[in-house]
Design a protein around this nucleic acid. Structure first.
Lengths: 344, 344
DNA sequence: GCATCCTGCTAATCCGATTTAGCTGAGCGG
DNA sequence: CCGCTCAGCTAAATCGGATTAGCAGGATGC
């Protein structure tokens, strides 16, 4: 940027020492002996001159830019992205690091180009993030580099993954249902294989369902039915309307995503059914909308902030990045949509 | 990052020329004469070796890091942030630039610290962004630097601003109302001075109201009333409920924000009033929720993508950044919540 | 009294590019 | 044949720090 910055040479001159001494005094290293008097004079000169080190110049020598790159498929189409970024950013900030944020929009060529742009700027590590939990194939440019996979898994790729604990979330949903007294009339809306637009296959749906069914079974309950549909408001509305039109009277709906819940609310409302009086609803994700719906939605929160944070912490922790899958808990947000079964 | 990169010296050696020649050949500069044969050999060697320039090293000499910093108050609490970032990022990408994204959370000290972190990394320019359109005082570290203000205004600070054209949006809302035949029974919910939590004062509310009233007046119409409240779902719900409970029967609601509209929908629904059959609703912002409500909400879109994009374009356009206010149009998203007045 | 050690500091090199200044040899005019 | 120009290239400096190697001088050991 514009006017000339104060350099370390300026500080050294001002303090009457060599640049070498200034460097050691400023970095506070103790393996090279600098007298207290000299150190003080350097520090004082730096303060007086308003010296700030040029990180770019430094990193040319040290190979560390104190910078992390984040490549994602989409940061914009999902309302969670902000939290991932914030979590990552705050963790980075705590150790004087900054984040390059990029988005490839699902385009492999763009992705490679972005990774190059990051590597050309000597980032210390790359976070490869997906906005839906799924299997991915990172671009070849990332092989052999320090990488953390965020919200995705890449078997065979030597890097740690940080993902939400979807399985346990499914179990927790079941536990909440059982605790409220639900053992029958439970329907799952959104099924296993939602979001078919992602051919790599969605992990969340399967794991949530697996955990859900497992604990329901253990609790002597079961699912009356599973409706397969996309995870969108319109789908939720359509499917629940159809269910009700067919004469089914569920007592609890497990919606696989908040958007589906919102559609379900609309359908239940039109049918004159109240939540949770007539039908309880429990959901996954905890989007903004969840707390604003009436009644407020009980849901298992996707821990995006924690995901971003942990990804950065793994990097800054130092040491080799081991190919371990870190599962981050999805906390239950108890609000008003889950109650005792109707008529009991 | 890990294993040794190919440097320009490697390329020069491989091509049998000096680093100087390699540099000129690679940068494609024509002011220094390089024979076609040499250039070809250098380019070929670079290709063979998979050479990529070290942007960090280059910028030490050139003073340009091809990097832009973005400092915002909050990127996470608002659902729009993603679009701002995406707009900025894509514009940057088009000219081989990358973006540092930071968030100060409204903390002045953190803000200064982040600006320093950016300047220490020699960013070419800084985008100072607010997530609500308002007056700001940028940190002193930014004085005299290349800065663009995004979604905010700072009188006396020498930098261009990029803001939504709220005034014209207010006018467009009035025009849409008039075109649908509304001239009476129009209420504004959310008023002028919403979001009192921001002492700097909110611009959006005032300008939207001003444009709205101006064009309504010109069209021979007027506002039956203005309800002042915060721009939140709960406030919208409460205020519209109160209005209805008091016996008022509005024919059109101008909600100053989509969140308010959502609350209004809930209140109208409970009162058995249909949208737009009984009451039309027009809104501002176009959050995700707007298209998913039933009926889908007619609203004036906050042009966040364009805001981010224009901010970066101003920077990359080159030349001095003049202290001009750029107003970006807010397009009308015509959906289903605005219809002819009831009973006509 | 001399070798050794330690303290406190500095000169010089390096990181990977860009850029300035200058060198060499061919071509050309007179 | 001499001096000049010019095309084509290279040596060396530079950017702002970090780091290595080493130097001066006093204290210490024997």
């Amino acid at each position: 940027m514009s006017e000339r910055r104060v350099t370390m040479a300026d500080v050294a001159r001002e303090a009457g020492v060599s640049p070498t001494t200034a460097s050691f005094a400023l970095s506070g290293r103790t393996d090279m002996r600098i007298s207290v008097a000299s150190r003080e004079r350097v520090l004082e000169a730096a303060r007086r001159l308003g010296y700030r080190p040029n990180v770019t110049a430094r990193s040319l020598r040290t190979k560390s830019t104190q910078t992390i790159g984040l490549v994602s498929d989409r940061i914009t189409t999902t309302p969670f992205a902000g939290d991932v970024i914030r979590g990552a950013m705050e963790a980075a900030r705590r150790q004087d690091h900054l984040l390059f944020i990029t988005e490839a929009g699902g385009d492999r060529a763009a992705e490679s180009s972005l990774v190059h742009a990051l590597l050309d700027r000597q980032v210390d590590a790359v976070i490869y993030a997906s906005m839906f939990t799924r299997y991915v194939t990172p671009p070849k440019e990332l092989f052999g580099r320090p990488v953390v996979l965020l919200n995705c898994l890449a078997p065979g790729f030597d890097a740690p993954s940080v993902v939400p604990d979807e399985l346990e979330a499914g179990r927790d949903a079941a536990r909440a249902l059982l605790a409220a007294g639900h053992t029958q009339g439970i329907w799952a809306i959104g099924g296993h294989q939602a979001v078919p637009a992602t051919p790599e296959g969605i992990i969340a749906g399967n794991e949530r369902m697996r955990g859900l069914e497992e604990v329901l079974r253990e609790g002597g309950a079961h699912l009356d039915g599973v409706v397969e549909c996309d995870w969108d408001t319109l789908d939720g509305y359509r499917e629940v309307s159809a269910l009700l039109a067919a004469g089914t009277r569920p007592r609890a709906l497990v919606c696989l995503a908040d958007r589906v819940s919102f559609g379900a609310y609309q359908a239940l409302g039109e049918a004159g059914l109240s939540v949770p009086g007539d039908v309880s609803v429990i959901s996954f994700d905890d989007q903004d909308i969840a707390s604003v719906l009436r009644p407020a939605l009980t849901t298992l929160k996707l821990p995006h902030y924690q995901l971003g944070r942990l990804a950065v912490e793994l990097i800054l922790r130092g040491g080799p990045l081991e190919a371990v899958v870190h599962r981050v808990p999805m906390p239950l947000r108890e609000r008003a949509s889950l109650g005792a079964p109707a008529g009991e």
